[in-house]
Design a protein around this nucleic acid. Structure first.
Lengths: 195, 195
DNA sequence: GTCTATAAAAGGATAGAC
DNA sequence: GTCTATCCTTTTATAGAC
């Protein structure tokens, strides 16, 4: 049965992170109190400080973890093939990855301004690295004559904005599967950059 | 010279709205206090309540004003022509309108969750009406064989997400003019929905 | 219409008992 | 490792003087 006191260090940390992820994504970092996070986990507020030095570190940890996971997962994919094949891989990966963790995606886009300047710079560097992965594909394809782009940086931003937008409307119980969504977006992206 | 007391009802209201718009967009609704808004205008916090019943009403007023302006401005445009011409009008309008008021755009996308349920429903209705304008263009073009769409609702969301994304990277002093940005995005949208 | 003053609640974070 | 208790600050909103 439930204990109201005792030692749970192995599982309490992840539960706090999970609760913070949920509450931050639902209500926003600034609108969520440490007491609310603690309550969600079944703790008193003071106990949280055994796991994070402060609220800011908790937010940063969630965002850093998300960006690290994004880059690691993408870079673990096979990288060969034509620019078109690599672009298709990117599109399908981006959609699947983002639809799989909507809360972390939401936080990572919405709470940037609540990071300290130092933490913001670190997250932006990771985001930039991910964007560069796509931009490299697009410029390679452009140089080989497969793609027609006026400006590779803008195309990069446009494609990422379009793809990330799936998280604003997709619902797992909805009428479309992730596979179908991937097919539809790949079709639009493919045509949009076509030579 | 500056007065520290006195009556300014004609201009204080707009200045409060302007200050709130700026601060909400920079730091987020929940992170901005009424004192900070008042300070930005050169008032004490209590004076704000001559202009708004509470903080929530101030946020809602800004978002409602933005959405009303968006719909009114779009519907004032000429509506005739082929689906392709109407789509181009939409794309260019959406970019120009959004780049012209980045703060209101930011708030209207980021602060939805800080609205009361009633206010949220009202804003969502306006957003839905705007999306329907685009979806109508796309389905008309699809039915006439000009466009090839797997799913008109998804195409609508994808195009809007892509276009609205300009506000995340565009800077007025940057290397591209609004005209150039419109050209680039219109090229991508046009190809993306092409039959 | 704005000020000062204040009420009443909630916030982040810490100390010390267990 | 968690609890209770508390410090100190900040918050939204109101009351009454000017």
């Amino acid at each position: 049965m439930a204990r109201t006191q005792g030692s749970h260090s192995q599982i309490t940390g992840p539960r706090i992170r999970s609760a913070a992820l949920k509450l931050f994504s639902e209500r926003g970092y600034a609108a969520v109190s440490m007491r609310q996070i603690a309550s969600e986990v079944g703790l008193q507020a003071g106990a949280l400080y055994n796991y994070t030095p402060d609220k800011q570190a908790l937010l940063f940890s969630l965002m850093k973890g998300h960006m690290d996971e994004l880059l690691t997962a993408y870079r673990a994919l096979p990288r060969g093939g034509t620019p078109q094949a690599r672009l298709e891989t990117f599109v399908r990966f981006h959609i699947a990855f983002h639809l799989d963790r909507p809360e972390a995606v939401f936080i990572s886009y919405m709470e940037l301004r609540n990071l300290t300047p130092e933490n913001f710079a670190l997250i932006e560097e990771l985001r930039g690295a991910y964007e560069t992965e796509l931009q490299t594909i697009l410029t390679t394809g452009h140089d080989q004559g497969d793609f027609a782009l006026t400006d590779s940086k803008i195309s990069t931003m446009a494609v990422i904005a379009m793809l990330t937008g799936v998280t604003t409307w997709y619902r797992p119980k909805g009428r479309l599967s992730v596979d179908q969504v991937q097919d539809i977006y790949w079709d639009m992206v493919r045509k949009a950059v076509l030579a």
